[in-house]
Design a protein around this nucleic acid. Structure first.
Length: 588
DNA sequence: GCCGTTTTCGGCCCGACTGTTTTCAGTCG
């Protein structure tokens, strides 16, 4: 059993224990262990075999025993018994807003409710309102929550959330009573999938700002509204929260509402270790509960709060309690990749396969945007659904691209189109073009589009063989996932990364919002192995060039710097790297 | 469940808001 599966089971144990009314700290211990396991950069089986589980943070004797059982036997007796003792419907009930473990336990004990459907029925019949500490309002809120879940997704793509959030943020900034404001939460941390959109503002008149926020045209309904905080439901079904604080409190509140939760817990523990107390109102020279301004460590910005805890500034996208504290103590936080560092995209489509724009249209638009190069990598023939090219059409396309480039050169334009293909990785890892055809192209990206349901071993072998082909520059959208729609195919990502490291093959960060693939969690490992990244738009339309910005944001979450990303290179250096990949080993 | 120079038990991040109460438990982030 691999680490993803182990982590999933540990997380589930935590939730099941919660539903049994267990000590919440026990639940957290399982969730923490799941995170630790998931972010390991070496095979879990190796750690188990070498008896090193106990060295991991948050894994004590009980969890060592359970994880070992999972890894060695593929199952866990404790988990199976626990799961059998909790009705499956309770897990779904936990997702209804306003319902937590305590209320679910009461509903089950008093009314025998064990599923969302039974809960809905019980609310309709008015049986829920009669329970102790429930009431009419709770009952109707539960019904609303169930209906809302049905009508709207509770998770949204980063790009979709950003599109809604940016105009709202601009609107808040223009409000006369707003001093400072920012997005917070998962949006500010550049997560690929967002739950709700969090905003934070500072003001001397919080009520005015809250009133303005809740009366915006995009607001469908107000979920909650207090003096300093409001939650609304926006068109399209995204929930948005605004918190308003004083300007003195703003840096502390921004830190707090940006999270992550795990990062915040570690920050507070750091404060306690230094005899301080950190909350959303301040950093206090006391471990007692206080808001005494005299005890406050004065901080105007987040930077100063970090400094107060002996840390360099941690960029929001790194605040996942995934190594940022160690790096921030030693001043080893990297300067992360930025949008403006990118000089072009090496995986894109045109009307020759399933893209919308012609080569001419692409060349003139990308030149206008100030990019240096743009590879046209249309699909190969096996992707017939995407009008993939066979060798003859590809060679015709190469001629057309050369003509365009000659014209650009004669006009003194610095921009160049690059020839290329997104070649299909077929069964057994063979490619859809011969090496001879591939050798004629500037850029070769190899991706899987068919036979997604093979076994982990088969898919891993396919990807490794493709990575080993000397004409392949990069593997495209490594996992095949479509966020919120399709799971990744099963494969051993670490084994594929190792193979890329050995072959000098790059891995794409596919910046299409529904892909964000390879996942940011794997990049620190790839980087440690020396594997380079290419941030690609996988553009099918001109406006997909904007994905470069999303890509840089997500890649920075993987701790990548300019030096780690190939398409930060200017054209001559890029061409050298593209050629170098194809030289036999020892001649570089 | 984990953890430890305030250590082997008794802590574990912390506060706003809601809806239920009439002082607070539960949920949420």
């Amino acid at each position: 059993m691999d680490k993803e599966q182990v982590a999933e089971i540990l997380l589930e144990i935590g939730i099941l224990l919660e539903l049994k009314g267990e000590n919440p700290f026990k639940t957290r211990a399982y969730a923490g262990a799941a995170r630790t396991i998931e972010t390991l950069h070496e095979p879990l089986a190796k750690i188990v075999a070498e008896n090193r589980l106990g060295e991991l943070k948050g894994i004590g004797e009980a969890l060592q025993q359970k994880i070992t059982e999972l890894v060695t036997t593929g199952r866990l007796d404790y988990h199976e018994k626990l799961k059998a003792s909790v009705p499956a419907g309770l897990m779904a009930m936990l997702e209804v807003p306003g319902l937590g473990p305590k209320k679910i336990i009461v509903l089950r004990r008093e009314l025998g409710v064990e599923s969302v459907e039974a809960l809905e029925q019980a609310c309709r019949e008015g049986r829920v309102a009669g329970l102790e500490r429930f009431g009419e309002k709770t009952q109707s809120n539960i019904l609303d929550g169930i209906a809302r879940r049905r009508a709207y997704a509770t998770q949204h793509l980063y790009a979709d959330a950003l599109r809604v959030a940016e105009p709202m943020l601009e609107d808040l900034r223009r409000h006369p009573d707003v001093i400072r404001c920012s997005a917070a939460g998962s949006l500010r941390r550049n997560r690929e999938v967002i739950g709700d959109i969090d905003f934070l503002a500072s003001s001397k008149k919080p009520a005015e700002v809250i009133a303005h926020f809740t009366s915006q045209p995009a607001v469908i309904s107000i979920i909650a509204r207090g003096d300093t905080k409001a939650s609304v439901l926006l068109e399209g079904g995204i929930q948005s929260d605004l918190r308003v604080v004083s300007d003195t409190e703003y840096p502390f509140a921004l830190l707090y509402f940006t999270g992550s939760k795990e990062h915040n817990i570690a920050m507070r523990q750091r404060a306690i270790e230094r005899g301080l107390r950190l909350n959303e109102y301040g950093l206090f020279r006391s471990t007692e509960e206080t808001r005494d301004p005299a005890l406050m460590v004065e901080c105007r910005t987040e930077e100063e709060v970090f400094a107060g805890l002996g840390l360099h500034f941690v960029p929001p996208e790194l605040r996942e309690d995934a190594g940022e504290f160690t790096a921030a103590e030693k001043e080893e936080l990297p300067r992360l990749i930025e949008w403006g560092d990118l000089k072009g995209s090496l995986h894109n489509h045109s009307t020759w396969s399933d893209g919308r724009q012609t080569l001419e249209e692409i060349a003139s638009s990308m030149d206008e945007l100030g990019l240096a190069y743009w590879a046209v990598t249309d699909h190969s023939k096996s992707s017939f659904q995407a009008n993939g090219l066979e060798a003859a059409r590809l060679r015709q396309q190469i001629r057309e691209i050369r003509e365009i480039n000659q014209r650009l050169a004669s006009e003194g334009v610095d921009f160049r189109l690059l020839t290329g293909t997104e070649v299909d990785i077929l069964k057994d890892g063979k490619l859809d073009f011969t090496d001879e055809v591939l050798s004629e192209l500037d850029v070769v990206v190899a991706s899987i589009h068919q036979r997604l349901a093979e076994t982990e071993a088969e898919t891993t072998t396919r990807l490794i063989r493709a990575a080993q082909n000397p004409y392949v520059h990069a593997l495209g959208h490594l996992s095949g996932r479509l966020l919120l729609a399709r799971e990744p195919y099963k494969f051993d990502a670490h084994a594929v990364i190792d193979a890329c490291a050995a072959a000098g093959t790059w891995i794409e960060f596919n910046a299409a919002p529904e892909r964000c693939d390879m996942d940011w969690r794997l990049w620190p490992y790839a980087k440690s192995k020396g594997v380079k990244c290419v941030i690609n738009c996988d553009a099918h339309r001109l406006d997909h060039v904007g994905y470069l910005r999303l890509g840089a944001g997500l890649a920075s979450k993987g701790w990548l710097t300019r030096a780690d990303v190939i398409n930060t290179l200017p054209l001559p250096a890029l061409m050298r790297e593209l050629a170098r990949k194809r030289q036999p080993p020892g001649r570089s």
